[in-house]
């Protein structure tokens, strides 16, 4: 039971963004996608979501090829939390979260009591019930991130892809969001998350995928992936490690050498 992206290639205007990248999102596990800026993490996630036209490669959910599914059927299988959680109108939180039910509704259909129950359940799990009547424009970054997760959860898809959901959040909300995602994985969902915090990646993820220059450099458990050699080669950093009460921590400590010349950003 998993999503498998196999040998994905993406080129945009002659620039190779993804170079034979392969990735699995198993159900019941939290998979972290890490790598320096410009490594192709977002493009790989967006390819899985079907937002990017891939040049070659195949993305399968169990035995089904995702490109054969309609946009609507795909929406029922995989939900998405966008980077920065944009909301373009001042809508109230209730309404935003209810939008997550759209994959299950016809264009004219109103939400039912069952939908309302699902929405309430997601709001309890994300601790957003008290925000129900607030406008999204009045929310803090952390509150908005939780609302967006609730919105993604109510579609009841088996898989969730989250693009940097904890970027620019305070430590409390970083932990809160990671806990919500971890609980989703424990409930049996497959979660893919793009992260920059290596410490949280190590603590929360079951699997890590390390990307560099459009390629997958390493895949495996956090301990296998977060080695001195891998991090030096990709991030050009030295890490510090320590043990406390049987737990093992890492933190980026200092730079080593120069980062690679970045390719131009493709999301113009």
């Amino acid at each position: 039971m998993m999503i498998k992206a196999h040998n994905i290639n993406v080129s945009i205007k002659g620039h190779v963004i993804l170079d034979n990248a392969s990735l699995s999102i198993p159900k019941g596990k939290m998979t972290g996608l890490i790598g320096p800026n410009g490594a192709g993490k977002s493009t790989l996630l967006r390819s899985i979501m079907g937002f990017v036209d891939i040049t070659s490669g195949i993305i399968k959910l169990d035995d089904i090829e995702l490109s054969n599914l309609s946009i609507k059927d795909r929406a029922k299988k995989i939900s998405y939390a966008a980077q920065g959680a944009p909301v373009h109108w001042p809508l109230d939180v209730n309404h935003i979260i209810a939008l997550g039910r759209i994959p299950h509704l016809d264009p004219w259909q109103k939400i039912s009591d069952l939908d309302r129950e699902i929405i309430r359940d997601a709001m309890i799990k994300t601790d957003t019930l008290h925000l129900a009547d607030r406008l999204t424009t009045s929310l803090s970054g952390g509150e908005k991130a939780c609302v967006m997760l609730a919105r993604a959860m109510v579609s009841q898809a088996d898989y969730l892809c989250a693009d940097e959901p904890i970027a620019s959040l305070d430590p409390y909300h970083q932990l809160q969001v990671m806990n919500i995602l971890q609980n989703l994985a424990k409930e049996g969902h497959g979660v893919l998350i793009i992260l920059h915090d290596l410490g949280l990646a190590k603590r929360y993820c079951d699997e890590l995928v390390l990307m560099h220059q459009g390629k997958i450099c390493a895949t495996g458990t956090p301990n296998d992936v977060l080695t001195e050699e891998n991090l030096d080669k990709t991030y050009h950093i030295k890490i510090s490690r320590w043990h406390e009460n049987g737990d093992h921590f890492i933190a980026p400590w200092k730079t080593s050498g120069h980062p690679d010349h970045k390719r131009p950003d493709h999301k113009i």
Binding site: R46, M49, G50, F51, S70, I71, K72, D73, R74, A75, K76, I78, S79, Y80, A82, P86, V87, H88, I96, L99, G100, I102, P103, R151, S155
Partner: peptide, 10 residues
């Protein structure tokens, strides 16, 4: 919620 999120909602 943006074009991407709209597409992810079907």
């Amino acid at each position: 919620l943006g074009s991407d999120t709209a597409q992810s909602l079907g």
